[in-house]
């Protein structure tokens, strides 16, 4: 039972992390001109953060 609760809370935490990563003000930090490896910073950031969330979800869900 306890394990289930802990898992629920981790899922909620990932969702909240996503909200923080994809919102003002964190998003604004990357809303600048310039490129990373030839890709505009904002795009690179969004896709990287997105991939990170997916990895976290996979690790938690497949446990």
């Amino acid at each position: 039972m306890l394990q289930e609760k802990a898992r629920e809370q981790r899922f909620i935490a990932i969702c909240m992390l996503g909200f923080v990563l994809f919102n003002f003000p964190v998003l604004a930090l990357f809303n600048v001109s310039g490129t990373v490896l030839g890709i505009p910073v904002l795009y690179a950031y969004i896709f990287a953060a997105w991939a990170l969330l997916i990895v976290l979800l996979a690790l938690l869900a497949e446990r």
Partner: peptide, 18 residues
Amino acid sequence: VGFLPIYIGPTLMIALWW
């Protein structure tokens, strides 16, 4: 990037699916 929230939203929601 204005279209991306439409696909990021489901990612955030699916975290709560469990």
